[in-house]
Every structure is written in structure tokens, then in C-alpha cells.
Amino acid sequence: MNKLLATAAAIVAIGSTPAFAQPTDILNASYDIGRELFEAENAAYAASGATLTINQSHAGSSTQARAVLEGLPADVVTLNQVTDIAKLVEGGFVAADWATQFPNNASPFYSFPSFLVRAGNPKDINDWGDLAEDGVQVIFPNPKTSGNGRYTYLAARAWAVEEYAGDDAKIEEFLTKLFNNVPVFETGGRAATTAFTERQLGDVLITFEAETLAVANQLGTDKYLPVTPSVSFLSEFPVAIIDKVVDNRGSRDAAKAYLDFLYSPEGQEVAAANFHRPNDEAVAAAHAATFPEIRLVTAEEAFGGWDAIAAEHFADGGLLDTVFLNQ
């Protein structure tokens, strides 16, 4: 009987991560469209002389937060939603002061919802107001399932609040028209991009600038033109150490060293080369030609912080539902 139990335990243990004193690898659970970026970051990290192997898992930001809660043994998370890290704090996986453990709200680089139009900009789309015009088809992911889509909703709303001087009826009318102009809501950011590029749906794609610039760069500026709106909503890419996992594996130092690297000039350079706006001023200056001027509003400035946003906008029956579901 004991032998049987030992065999069963051995079978179960296949593929699990034993607790090493000196971990030689860590797992980074990251968001869906960060694959190219982190492949490049990890290559640069290895080139910098680090012996640590970085394993990558990629899925939607909220899916990854859920997976960590369910036991995905990630040492660090690099997500694109502050609210997803909040879920990990609630679950006791991440320290409550995570945002101050690393600079810039623990966001090594940033982006914002921006536009990608077809060559020549035939529908003359230059700012948020143009998206609600009749006959314009807009592609962005479903805000119910995608953080990317939620950022787009918040950016459009932030523009409308300024444009209509807080007139709720006009703001709601604009947002309803905008949502009515979306022929199909994809579930994630990358799916929206492929709908726009592979299936040739829509006149304008709204997604992170990191994605619009990368697509134009990769698929050709003769086919696609990135357009920067007058104002947008700061999208942070928060990073955090998963306390439960690093304490169990003894990998805290390794995890911290890796996240610190993302803030180093080399790490920032890789981020900028992959169209994520760097926080490092020297690196930002070197890439100024890539990134047009933009005015960004934050969650605190525009909507009173993420808790207020969750309660007023994204809760069931919230402001998102009034413009999204009542079409």
C-alpha cells in the first residue's frame, strides 16, 4: 500500500516544480499580446549576462490573474490591468504595497489606446469624435472580456467628458454611437487586430499604441497608418512579484532582479524598440521620433481611481452597460 502511494505521488509530481534552494528559472505569467515584447526582453536579459532562464506563459491579462489564483506557479506577473493585480492582492498572492515596490506605479513602460487606419485614411479619422460618424466602422475588443477594450472605453469617455463639458446626455449619445459603429466585438486585443488586418473588417482599429505601431511596422506603412488622437487614457503594464510562489521556491531575489532589468536602460531600450513607451528619459529621448506627442489622462485624474471605475463603470448595470448593452 505504501509503495502504491509512493508511486502515485511520483506520477503526480511529474512536471511539478520542486523547491530548489537556488532556482535557475522563473515563470513570468504575462498578457496575451506581450509575447514579442517579452521574447525580446528575455533575450536581452540573457545577453546582459544573466544566467536565469525566464519561462513565459501568455494569455489574456484577467485569465492569467485567475490562473495564478488557481495555482499557476508564476514567480512574477507582467499584466496590462491594474485591476488584475488587485485580484491577486485580494487572494493574498501579492503584497498590498505592490505599486510602490517598483518605480512608476510598478509599470516599467506604458501605452494608451490609439488608432490604426487603412492607407490614405479614406474616412479621415483623426480624433475620437470622428469614430461616432455615420458610416465609420470601428474595431476594438469587447470591454466585457478584454482589458484593452476597457481602456478604449475609458479613453473615449475621457475625451467626451472634456469635449461635452460633462454633459451626461451628450457623452452617452457619443458613446452609444461609437459602440453602434462596431460590427463585431472580438474577445481579446489580438483577435481584434487580426479581424482588422486578416479579415479586413472595419475602417479603424483601436488598440494599444504598442500594437498599432507594431502592426504598421510589420505589415507595412503602405497599407496601414497609425493615427494618434488628441487625448488618450494612460495604460499601465503593472508588474508584481507573487509572494506565495517566490517564498515557496526561494526565488524572490531572482524575480526582483528580472523585474529590475525591465527598468534598466537595456530593458527600456527593448520596450521602446517594441513600441512600448519607456519611462527612462534618455531612452525616451532617443526614440522621440517613433512616439508622437500625446496628452494622457490617468485613472485618478479622469475618474477618481480604479476602485471608482470598477464600481461606476464596469460593475453589472454600470455606465458601460448603459452604452454597450442597450443598443
Binding site: 511539478s16 495555482g71 487572494g91
Partner: peptide
């Protein structure tokens, strides 16, 4: 399977207590 063996699942916490990681592995 996730609800059964996941960290928030029925048997997951007990398994984790025993140091056994089932979900997100080849097993």
C-alpha cells in the same frame, strides 16, 4: 478539473498543502 484541483478548488488547497502541484503541469 480546475474547480476540482485548482488552488481555489475543492481538492486543490489540500494538494497544495501536501506540496503537490497538479494544475498547469503535464500531469
Amino acid at each position: 478539473y480546475l474547480f476540482l484541483y485548482g488552488g481555489q478548488g475543492l481538492l486543490g488547497p489540500a494538494l497544495q498543502g501536501a506540496g503537490i502541484q497538479l494544475m498547469f503541469t503535464v500531469t
